[in-house]
Amino acid sequence: MPITVLVVDDSGFFRRRVCELLSTDARIKPIGTASNGREAVEKAIELKPDVITMDYEMPVLDGISAVREIMQKAPVPVLMFSSLTHEGARITLGALEAGAVDYLPKNFEDISRRPDELAKALCDKVIEVSRSKRGALASSAKHIARPERRSSLSSVRPASRPSLTPTQSEAPKRVSPAKNSKPQPRHFDLVAIGTSTGGPMALQTVLTQLPENFPAPLLLVQHMPAAFTGAFAERLNSLCKIQVKEAQDGDVLKPGLALLAPGGKQMVVDKRGSSVRILAGDERLNYKPCVDVTFGSAANAVKGNILGVIMTGMGADGRDGCRMLKEHGATIWSQDEDSSVIYGMPMAVAKAGLSDEVLSLNDLGYRLSTDVSR
């Protein structure tokens, strides 16, 4: 059965072109269009598409409001179209918080100048987001922390402690503690977190649970274009008690400071293990930034205990980096399938036998806030 798509945009030209581009792939079938957010909500309920492509600026009901209502009434993976500007990034991050899965640049010039390349990128992305877990989408949109300012933030705690025992199919080397056990706090010299599709809001959920005096430096690697990482770091910094910033060359690793790898580049830990270097993105690598690159550099440079965390995302980026970390005695946590929007990256780590614990999204933040000691 083909993947069915509802195309939402206030431009009739853009709706037609998106449908034409999607129709170039036999695995995809456009089944309807909508010209505003209200119509999008109604058709999402009526047509039950597998994926929705959504513009932001529309009459009657804007894209963010439409996504939020769709997640409440008929959860479905939503792919946002975004401008690659700081303001476009800010709007797109709002749409992701509302429940959208991912985004693509909206560029009319690309449609006319390189339609074949754009068609492949669009179809590949639609197929990718169609694999999203609808339950995780709806849960994330419903429960994500939305504090308005840092001073008013209170730590989030799960209503009940979920079982930390991983499923048999994931088979990590070491079984997690039983449900009612209390893990002993451990000292870590560095916490490194890697994620991709579904990651922006997963990171927000985890990092807003950390206390201001979090005792370890953090490195964050999120697959994201260069125009977005600055806005994303600003957003996290405004919501979190810890400090979050887009990494710059020479930034020093400090407890309670999270450095976000800049889009289009690579972030590595310097040989002394005390600061980061920001390098040009290697064209031979699929991801810029790349989790494997950052994790691998940390494994070689940091002479101490490292905690590596792999969260929701497509593909297997982070698996090789986690293997290098494990070879140097690191601890690895991976997100579980039920709470992952896309169970690709954490599955690759778990199936490789690298996960010491497989944890739910909410429990990841809880465990970081309570189990990482000074």
Rank of each mutant, 00 (worst) to 15 (best):
R27Q: 11
E337M: 08
A121W: 00
V129G: 05
M80P: 10
P59Q: 13
P30S: 03
Y287I: 00
L257S: 06
D25Y: 03
H223D: 13
Q335V: 11
K254I: 11
V175G: 02
V206I: 15
L153Y: 04
K326F: 07
S140N: 14
P59W: 00
E128S: 13
I70S: 12
K106L: 09
P158D: 08
K326T: 05
R131Q: 15
M347R: 15
A316S: 15
T294Q: 05
V341A: 08
L359M: 11
G329N: 08
T205C: 04
M347G: 02
E212G: 15
E234C: 08
C123E: 09
E97L: 00
E57A: 13
V244Y: 07
E283D: 13
I127R: 14
L207I: 06
V156Q: 12
L210H: 04
H328F: 09
V276F: 06
G313I: 05
A231H: 08
A247V: 05
E57K: 14
L22Q: 01
P289N: 08
V358T: 14
S154V: 13
F295P: 13
D320M: 14
D336M: 04
L236R: 10
P200V: 02
P255W: 01
T208N: 08
A95F: 05
M314T: 06
Q248V: 09
G88Q: 10
A261N: 03
L364N: 01
S196T: 02
G135S: 14
D282R: 05
Q184G: 03
E170R: 09
R284W: 01
A178W: 04
V244R: 10
L354A: 10
M224Y: 12
P158S: 06
L21K: 02
Q168W: 07
N107K: 12
E46L: 11
S176L: 08
K254H: 10
L104F: 03
C322H: 06
L6Y: 02
L96V: 03
K241Y: 03
P185V: 07
N213R: 12
A74S: 15
R146A: 13
A66T: 07
Y366N: 11
D338P: 01
D124F: 00
P30M: 00
D371L: 13
K142D: 13
A40M: 06
T312D: 11
G273Q: 08
H143C: 01
D9Q: 12
A66I: 08
A100C: 10
Q168M: 10
I310W: 05
P166W: 12
A26F: 00
L257Y: 04
K241C: 12
A192P: 04
E212N: 05
Q184R: 14
L361K: 09
A100G: 11
D102I: 03
R27L: 00
L257F: 05
E57S: 12
S82Q: 07
P215G: 14
G99W: 11
